[in-house]
């Protein structure tokens, strides 16, 4: 049973990354009509950003959790201003091709300097509260041993996901955003700067990816290609969940992570492929995706 719980936890962690990434993809797609193929590369940049902060400047994990998403978010906004904005009005496919090119460039540059092997990033050992040193170590829950960092990733991701949901569904800014998704021309007529909102939205989506990268750095090591295969799984998640609803992306992300974890326990050979197989099944039964509208 210990092994089952451990795999469930791994599943929840992967699920948090799926949720954070597919959430960003959905938000970006809503505003820019672009499927951001560079999302995996930007996730990787988030992890590298944390690595650089620690090894070059000595800035630790907690600050990296804020600085890396902001820095990568700004990088994303520069990409949007200099390249993506020129694709408005063109076929959606060009956005996919352009961001694929950006992903190749970013991953290629990092591979040149860091090869393909993983760089270690330690779990933070501060602040010391009670008997715990930062997020290191673990605690015995009676039925399983919980490494604290892993529990932290799941809880923190969930909080960030829900905060994003709140921002988009419940605040005034989110209302502007949803309105601009539906009808940008009309929203502009009301005096709202839609191009700036588009840039900020891209920054937000990219920042979420970078945040996922920082969170995964101590677990998965920092590698130039860490996002390359992940993004394809996230695409499958997006196809399954549909991009119509924010909450749908979050729930689908976590649920698929858990299913993957269970598969790892019961039938490990299929753990790589289970998400794709589920995608096929969903397409056969309900082609529009679980929460999606017809597209």
């Amino acid at each position: 049973m210990q092994a089952l719980y451990a795999q469930l936890l791994v599943g929840l962690i992967n699920g948090s990354f799926y949720a954070l990434l597919s959430l960003g993809l959905a938000v970006i797609f809503g505003m820019l009509n672009i499927i951001n193929f560079a999302h995996g590369a930007l996730y990787m940049m988030g992890a590298f950003c944390a690595y650089f902060l620690l090894n070059l400047t000595g800035i630790g994990y907690w600050w990296a959790l804020i600085i890396a998403p902001v820095a990568v978010g700004i990088f994303g906004m520069i990409l949007e201003r200099t390249m993506l904005q020129w694709l408005a009005g063109l076929d959606h496919l060009y956005g996919l091709l352009l961001t694929f090119g950006i992903a190749l460039i970013v991953q290629g540059v990092f591979q040149n300097y860091f090869g393909s092997s993983g760089l270690p990033y330690a779990i933070p050992d501060y602040p010391e509260i009670g008997g715990f040193r930062g997020l290191q170590g673990g605690m015995n829950l009676g039925f399983m041993f919980l490494p604290i960092y892993r529990g932290w990733v799941v809880v923190f991701s969930l909080v960030v996901c829900l905060a994003t949901w709140f921002l988009i569904e419940k605040t005034r800014l989110g209302a502007y955003l949803r309105a601009a998704t539906e009808n940008p021309t009309l929203v502009r007529a009301f005096g709202i700067n839609v191009p700036r909102m588009i840039t900020l939205t891209y920054g937000l989506g990219v920042g979420l990816a970078a945040l996922a990268g920082v969170l995964s750095a101590p677990i998965n090591q920092v590698r130039p290609l860490m996002g390359a295969d992940l993004i394809i799984v996230v695409f499958a998640v997006v196809v399954i969940g549909g991009m119509g609803s924010i909450m749908g992306s979050i729930i689908t992300g976590f649920a698929l992570g858990v299913i993957e974890g269970l598969t790892k326990y019961f039938y490990p050979e299929a753990s790589n492929t289970v998400v794709f197989v589920l995608m096929v099944l969903v397409l056969l039964v309900k082609p529009t995706g679980l929460t999606g509208r017809a597209a």
Partner: peptide, 24 residues
């Protein structure tokens, strides 16, 4: 399987299917 969705989804589905095959 893949022509059940259009446009951008079609691209993502074909990519995911080829990745499925890669792992197989």
């Amino acid at each position: 399987i893949s022509i059940r969705r259009q446009g951008i989804y079609f691209s993502m589905i074909t990519l995911a299917l080829s990745q499925l095959l890669y792992f197989i």
